[in-house]
Computed example of a mutant assay.
Amino acid sequence: MTVPSNRNRLQKLARNYLKGKLTVSEQQEFDEWFLSEDAEETILEIGLTPLEHKRLMLARIHSEAGIVRQEARRRWLWPRIAAAASVIIILSYGAFLLFPGKPVKKQAAHAIQDIAPGGNKAILTLANGEKVQLNGTKNGFIAQQGGVTIAKREDGQLSYTGGQAAAASGELFNTVETPRGGKYQLTLADGTIAILDAASSIHYPVAFNGDQRSVQITGQVYFEVVHDARRPFKVSVKGQVIEDLGTKFNINAYDDEPVIRTTLVEGSIGLKTSSQYIILKPGQQAVNSTGNPVTNVVAVDIEDALAWKNDNFLFNNEPLESIMRKISRWYDVDIQYQKGFNLKESYLGGLTRYSNVSQVLKMLEITGEVRFEIDGKTIRVMQKKRNNI
């Protein structure tokens, strides 16, 4: 491979491009080279730093995939990237969006086959034990229990309307469960909205009686609770109870995650454990390790915590092992790691969750010291070969 004769000029254009400082004429000159067939090779030879090279290579992948950048968001993110020494992926949530339906021209190099993203699917278990596949059920009436009508709305969501009390024989409970690769939204009898991520569940009464409203969850669930000062809303999960009077919050309590994260979006919630009672403010997150009596409160970016709800992946200096757990749940795949692979390497990036898995893996592969193989419903994670860089 020969060094291009205009090496210094291309280096200057590339760096100004990454800074967003190209003039109109320079942009035209840059595009003519950057979109050419030999650009991928010459990028290696124009004297960029490793970080600049990764950013430019990722930008080329976005161009080929039809991904568009929003400059304002990109400028906001780069200072955070510069401060993260272990960052490998440079791709910001909200900065890179896929055009729906636009085909990807370049697939992951090691993909034997592609895997489509998850979607709107769940199983409803009625009080009598009957199971209903919600993604295969027609819109309209499903059942009536305890004076409450259970229906699937035109937007595909589940709703409970009607009577204010359960059957005389006692409270009746339903359960909604999402499989791996599933997501689902339902409206409870009091009007509270619950959105379930993949591999999650919520167990709840068909109508709320008494002086409180209580549900139990697993996995990850986002709530928008209807205000009722007389009847607080309580969520039980793994020995914790989250209580609120009318607010928006997210709970991440997967069994395969090392901590439980409760994030407050709006309003106020109280979190009770065996040894603590904590009041959260908007923008705060309660973090509790399994078996640890101490719950820590940290300030977080709400956009990060709600990325899944907004149908995006968002990795903010996140270990690859954590990223692959998300990929496993959403694409319903198993993950295998090469012996000795560094699972703690951190990544910063994001992409719509409605991308095929090859697009997610391609960006990880191009910008990091990692490569992947897809074999049926298994993704193998391996160290990148040096001659692939």
Rank of each mutant, 00 (worst) to 15 (best):
T49F: 07
K54E: 10
K54G: 07
R55N: 11
M57V: 11
L58D: 02
A59M: 10
I61Y: 11
I61G: 08
H62P: 01
H62S: 06
S63R: 06
G66F: 03
I67D: 02
R69E: 03
Q70D: 11
E71V: 03
R74P: 02
R75V: 05
W76F: 09
W78C: 05
R80Q: 10
A83S: 15
S86P: 00
S86M: 09
V87Q: 07
I89W: 08
G94V: 05
F96P: 03
L97A: 14
L97R: 15
F99V: 15
P103D: 07
P103C: 07
P103A: 04
K105L: 12
Q107C: 10
A108I: 11
A109N: 12
A109D: 14
H110M: 13
I112D: 15
D114P: 06
P117A: 08
G118L: 00
G119T: 08
K121P: 04
L126I: 01
A127N: 03
A127R: 02
K131F: 01
N135G: 08
N139K: 13
G146Y: 03
V148M: 10
V148N: 03
A151N: 13
A151E: 14
R153K: 14
E154I: 08
G156R: 08
Q157N: 15
Q157P: 04
S159E: 13
Y160D: 06
G163V: 03
A166V: 11
A166F: 08
